[in-house]
Design a protein around this nucleic acid. Structure first.
Lengths: 225, 225
DNA sequence: AAATTAGATTAGACGCATCTAATCCTTAAG
DNA sequence: CTTAAGGATTAGATGCGTCTAATCTAATTT
């Protein structure tokens, strides 16, 4: 049996691996989880004993396949809950994250199954994040790019938005940016501001925000190999 | 801030007070919660420090008004969740208790509010247990009696069934006993078996089961003062 | 009234998740 | 090649919730 906290660590390692690639450093994890580095060290030692992460001292950690399965399970819970809150309880997308975080460790497999069924087995949550399937196979990484990496003139469709920052999400909701929205990059001002055009509306996005948005190319064929 | 465990203790004291009246003894609580008596002693000391229970050493505990409010809050969460699981996720009434127990400490006030709204502010959960109202005022005790106290010839309507024992609940579901069911007491066999008649069907209920059913008199005026 | 018994409490311990303070690697810069 | 800087780890402590073993209190029986 794993504690809630252990599940949180595994989920965090999973997400940080996606973001920066393995190995994930102690301080990176500590920041992400809001604890101190020694706390992380002692926790990852326990996770290593259980075969959930592989660790190289002074370097960082990486999930084992078993650890990844746990992370995907938790992530599936989290994202199904987010979808449920938005679809059936009228939550806005900036309100679902914390509630889902609180509940994700406490729902049974039965609950997960019935929730998925009720929702019609959705593929993505309200932020566009892919929901792991029931078999918990590692999903292939979808071919999305970070908006911040694009240049003036590109036309893209929003695929996913990071769900970790409520402020950001409210800002984007007001701006009309959500999964599916198509936009043209007008300018990347060096002051750290992105200017984009959405259906004729000009919208300004600070770099921090543009870095949290993942997009898919549109109109021009940019199909990478 | 109260821990989940503290909330469980307060809920347990509340329910045991209803059942046997205060004060609630250490071993009674220990049995109910599945822990040892010393564990209860140390926990109720902490609850006393926080003003949630009143305690007389070697006698037992009793909720203060503040403690009762916490208990009612948790109970409201629990019963709203049970109602939700049964109404919207197709759970059977013997399956809802454990799931609700796991979730009751982790839902936000916002979630509670939206759930109640979605359910149409139900007054009772699937077992007939009253759901505390949003203002958490202590509900007046409804005038129900234990089925086991009735004699042959009485006609009664089932009001509530204890939700603590899955076996029992499945047995009763099969027998067609649920809140609202009307039945005639045919015989109380001294072997510890109740015989009742439901719409012409004869149903046998062991004493243990009959003790978990609360009923309201029907047909004959037995309005007690 | 004394003795037994049922129940409650104290004493002391453990594992979890966390912290602060101190020390120890690793690496990049001089 | 030495050293300074930045991370990471060890050491040691704390609070929570739990346990077992030992002791104590209260109530009932004789």
């Amino acid at each position: 049996m794993l504690s809630d906290v252990m599940e949180d660590y595994l989920k965090a390692v999973y997400e940080l691996e996606r973001e920066h690639g393995p190995p994930v450093g102690t301080s990176t994890l500590a920041d992400y989880l809001g604890v101190t580095p020694p706390t992380v060290t002692s926790m990852v030692e326990k996770l290593e004993e259980r075969g959930l992460v592989e660790r190289e001292k002074y370097k960082g950690v990486e999930l084992t396949p078993e650890g990844e399965t746990v992370a995907l399970e938790v992530l599936r819970h989290h994202r199904l809950l987010e979808a449920f809150l938005a679809d059936h309880l009228d939550y806005e997308w900036d309100e679902v994250h914390d509630e889902a975080d609180a509940l994700e460790h406490h729902i049974s497999e039965e609950f997960e199954k019935r929730l998925a069924q009720k929702l019609g087995d959705p593929a993505v949550d309200p932020h566009g994040d892919p929901i792991p399937t029931e078999d918990l196979e590692p999903p292939e990484s979808p071919d999305t790019e970070v908006l911040a990496d694009h240049e003036a003139g590109d036309r893209v469709a929003v695929a996913r938005v990071s769900d970790r920052d409520d402020e950001e999400l409210r800002y984007l909701k007001d701006a009309g940016v959500e999964p599916g929205t198509e936009l043209d990059v007008v300018e990347h001002a060096p002051i750290g501001m992105f200017v984009v055009d959405i259906d004729g509306e000009t919208v300004h996005l600070p770099d921090r925000v543009a870095a949290a948005i993942r997009v898919r190319p549109v109109d021009e064929r940019v199909t990478e190999t």
